[in-house]
């Protein structure tokens, strides 16, 4: 009921009904539906030419759950989340959002379903012809009936939360990568959508800002019951925010479950990935064997003396 009240509050604010997909009568979703999986990925296969990027993926994501997808570079993580919002079409299999097959929707219907999503892009994807302020205001102007004054209040609050309010009047080309990332996050959060997809939200951010972003992801879940799918390489972040973790290895789900189960998994790739990210005593011990800068300089001199300095 709390969730329904929060959705009603958001619906009132954005000017349209949120929380119910295309093909559903507004208000007919039962409480049991509300507790079931919101997103179902069924036997998803994606091939680019001969290359299979996603190989028979099956995942269910519950309403209000935060699923963190981890995996090495090129494992298919970004391709997987792009399917959730139909930026990619599956080679086979289905993506169901509240029972609606995303791949079966036409442009117009898809556009309506996408109003329920927000996405933070890995490379920010800010509109370079607009200021930072206009970038964050864009979804509000497009999708709500809010006045410019209300939009301004809302945008400035979000920019302030992410520490980029001072850059509101600047163009994306005039801000750093870290700031652009935060603006991208502000833009995705400003509508407080039902389902949020974060493609590496903390990459390129300093540790303090990374934790702020983690807190925001948590806050979105706590306050608005948002369903989140997060791709990250940041293991600390993954284990802080995840209800469940899924690890992709070569296009397949290697392990899936609560963070502690994934940590305890004896899957070779999972162990290698998790332990490469953690600061374990063995790695600290290795540091004591590290050469000092003076030793490194001496080695370089010695090598150059042997082989002769390169002619410039």
């Amino acid at each position: 009921m709390r969730l329904a009240a929060q959705r009603a509050e958001v619906s009132d604010w954005v000017g349209y009904e949120v929380g119910y997909g295309v093909g559903y009568e507004v208000g007919t979703m039962s409480e049991s539906d509300a507790d079931g999986p919101q997103i179902i990925i069924e036997d998803l296969v994606k091939r680019f030419g001969e290359r299979t990027v996603l190989d028979h993926i099956n995942i269910k994501i519950d309403r209000g759950e935060t699923l963190v997808v981890i995996g090495g570079s090129g494992a298919g993580k970004s391709t997987l989340v792009r399917h959730l919002i139909a930026l990619e079409r599956p080679t086979s299999g289905r993506i169901l959002v509240d029972g609606v097959d995303m791949a079966a929707l036409g442009d117009f219907e898809l556009s309506r379903v996408r109003r329920r999503f927000g996405m933070v892009f890995q490379k920010y994807a800010l509109f370079d012809s607009m200021t930072v302020y206009d970038n964050v205001a864009f979804p509000l102007r497009e999708q709500t009936k809010m006045s410019e004054r209300e939009i301004k209040d809302r945008v400035m609050v979000k920019l302030d939360e992410l520490g980029v309010a001072h850059a509101a009047a600047r163009m994306p080309a005039e801000i750093s990568g870290g700031m652009a990332k935060r603006v991208g996050i502000a833009r995705a959060l400003v509508l407080e959508p039902e389902i949020l997809i974060y493609d590496e939200p903390t990459s390129g951010l300093d540790p303090v800002t990374s934790r702020t972003v983690d807190e925001l992801i948590e806050e979105m879940r706590e306050r608005f019951g948002v369903t989140s799918v997060v791709i990250t390489h940041d293991m600390a972040s993954a284990f802080d925010i995840a209800d469940r973790v899924a690890m992709l290895v070569r296009g397949k789900i290697a392990v899936e479950g609560p963070p502690e189960n994934v940590m305890a998994s004896d899957h070779e790739d999972v162990q290698r990935f998790v332990h490469s990210s953690a600061i374990d005593p063995a790695r600290i011990a290795q540091r004591s064997a590290r050469k000092s800068p003076a030793q490194v300089r001496a080695l370089r001199k010695e090598r150059l003396a042997k082989q002769g300095a390169p002619k410039v």
Partner: peptide, 10 residues
């Protein structure tokens, strides 16, 4: 990815 961003914003 600005075109993708537009799509995600419906």
């Amino acid at each position: 990815e600005q075109i993708d961003a537009l799509e995600t914003m419906a």
